[in-house]
Design a protein around this nucleic acid. Sequence first.
DNA 1: GCCATTTTATTCGCTAATCAAAATATCTAT
DNA 2: ATAGATATTTTGATTAGCGAATAAAATGGC
Lengths: 171, 171
Amino acid sequence: MVCCLCHEAEIGGMEDRTQTSLIALRRILRATELNARTLARATGLTTPQLIVLEIVAAAGRATPKDISGKAGVGQATATALVDKLEARGLVTRTRSDLDKRVVWVAPTEEGRELLKTAPDPLQKTFSAQFEKLPDWEQAMIVAALERVGAMLNAGALDAAPLLDVGAVDRK
Amino acid sequence: MVCCLCHEAEIGGMEDRTQTSLIALRRILRATELNARTLARATGLTTPQLIVLEIVAAAGRATPKDISGKAGVGQATATALVDKLEARGLVTRTRSDLDKRVVWVAPTEEGRELLKTAPDPLQKTFSAQFEKLPDWEQAMIVAALERVGAMLNAGALDAAPLLDVGAVDRK
DNA sequence: GCCATTTTATTCGCTAATCAAAATATCTAT
DNA sequence: ATAGATATTTTGATTAGCGAATAAAATGGC
């Protein structure tokens, strides 16, 4: 196999490739979704709970508002998720002294331990195989993923206001 | 920019790239998730409901068991989702004559119409931008996405039914 | 033909996620 | 000091999802 893919590019039809990449994208989504479920079962936590725990552990501590923003859920939901984690002894709540409105959520030793000992199988599988790839292919994948991410995020920004308008005319 | 990325590959640290690609992957997942929510709001349906409708429309008709398999949920859930769609007049239930246990779920005219007019910002923006890319970059992205998909599926190779979110891709 | 097994769809009881709106407590600026 | 802003939680509701139980119909062995 060679580094440059341009030759292979000529083979497939031009229009197919959009479809092909969308299909590939969906396969990736599907795989990660399945992964999330098995991970959830393995740790005894649900996926949203695990996400919150990861956010908190990554930052060292976080307010419910931080969590809500980073996890992409409402504040009420964030509170509910923190409740569950706190009940399981994986995080603690501490009221701030400087601003008594804010609550710091921090992982307990047990919470950190759980993240360490229950590593994401997605990450594991991916990492293991990714690191076996030749250098050029790693670089290609990084570039492609970032490209796709940028494209999708650009779309999300454009689409938001547009959708609000169109949301009414149905039903 | 040139076709071959090998030069750039030398720049970044070797270990970073695994992390970088995981981060990029998460951005993609996040974007598609947000997209699903806005799409759901725009159509007045929830994401699982939309998936079921797409499965039914793609196949012409489907039994609750089919749906359950393709959507990756239990039969009870499939029944519940069909209930919602039926209540909104987007699908119909018909008992089979040959085997009176089975129920055929088929889209109504209104259901098909909704899928046609439903804006799918993810697909739309992705396609629009993807098609503007130079040939070599398209090929690179397809190759990379398929590579990643294969790697992830290797981890969870239960060959689960494909998520038919697309409504376009049929084998 | 008859009974046991399997298959298909549905119902029921329960947990979790999620949101919007209201309630509470606290801070900040005037 | 008071009005408004901010952070969190509570409340009330909907949806998704699972597993177990149920009902109805097909199938296979005898």
